[in-house]
């Protein structure tokens, strides 16, 4: 059975969170699942977004720009995950679409244990979709996981040098800057972040036939992340477009 590294990095600073994902993308060849949260809460812009297209940027206390595309996310009351793996890995080989279907199916399994019936959005837009906000959770696509007429899981990928970084946000609750998301606690009010994390691990293990080995970032990954932390919060990068 394949063994993935499992990193749990709770309450990471926004810049460090993005820098560690970058270090993992460029680091170990071994598939790695990272589960993390943010302290302080922060807004992340998609790699190609124009800052002026995201009005919430001015309201956010902290901001970063991601390596992945898509819309802005307010990282609060959520479990954030990242998967880093070689592009040849069966989870990611082939069309991008297929990899989303596989990963989101595993997340949907985990959510089902809370009574949340998350499904791929499909062809119809959601009630929560809105123009002009630049927010990921208000701009759904057919591969997004939704329930109660809104998007509850947003994820995006970066593919570089034969590797993939796939990260995403699973919403436990709404925040003032992400007020229209579908939330796990709408269905399961007592659900905790730790429970969501553990059930996600169980679902990934079952769906993908893998085991997890709890680990820390390697020295090289940690050093690279520390070195690059300030880049992801820098004015030059956040406002590069």
């Amino acid at each position: 059975m394949e063994v993935w590294r499992l990193l749990r990095t709770w309450s990471g600073a926004p810049g460090y969170n993005m820098a560690l994902d970058e270090a993992l993308l460029l680091g170990s060849a071994r598939p790695t699942l990272r589960l993390y949260t943010w302290e302080p809460e922060a807004l992340s812009l998609g790699y190609f977004q124009r800052a002026r297209d995201v009005p919430n940027l001015e309201r956010a206390h902290a901001a970063v720009r991601r390596l992945t595309g898509g819309g802005a996310i307010h990282h609060a009351h959520e479990l954030t995950f990242s998967i880093t793996a070689p592009l040849e890995h069966p989870l990611y080989a082939g069309e991008v679409r297929g990899s989303y279907e596989r990963v989101h199916a595993a997340i949907a399994d985990a959510l089902a244990t809370f009574g949340v019936h998350a499904e791929l959005r499909g062809t119809s837009a959601l009630q929560s979709d809105r123009e002009g906000t630049g927010m990921c959770f208000e701009h759904s696509t057919d591969l997004d996981l939704a329930w109660s007429g809104a998007k509850g899981v947003g994820s995006a990928q970066r593919r570089t040098k034969g590797r993939v970084l796939h990260h995403g946000s699973i919403k436990l609750d709404r925040s003032p800057l992400d007020a229209s998301v579908a939330a796990i606690r709408d269905v399961a009010p007592s659900a905790t972040l730790e429970q969501v994390a553990e059930r996600l691990l169980a679902s990934f293990a079952s769906r993908f036939g893998v085991e997890f080995e709890t680990a820390e970032p390697s020295k090289a990954e940690g050093a690279r992340a520390s070195e690059r932390t300030s880049h992801f919060t820098s004015n030059a990068f956040v406002h590069r477009r």
Binding site: Y47, F48, L67, T68, G69, G70, V96, R97, Y100, T141, L143, A156, Q157, R158, R159, T160, K161
Partner: peptide, 8 residues
């Protein structure tokens, strides 16, 4: 960038 991935 496609809807779901940024690639080099």
């Amino acid at each position: 960038e496609s809807v779901k991935a940024v690639a080099d």
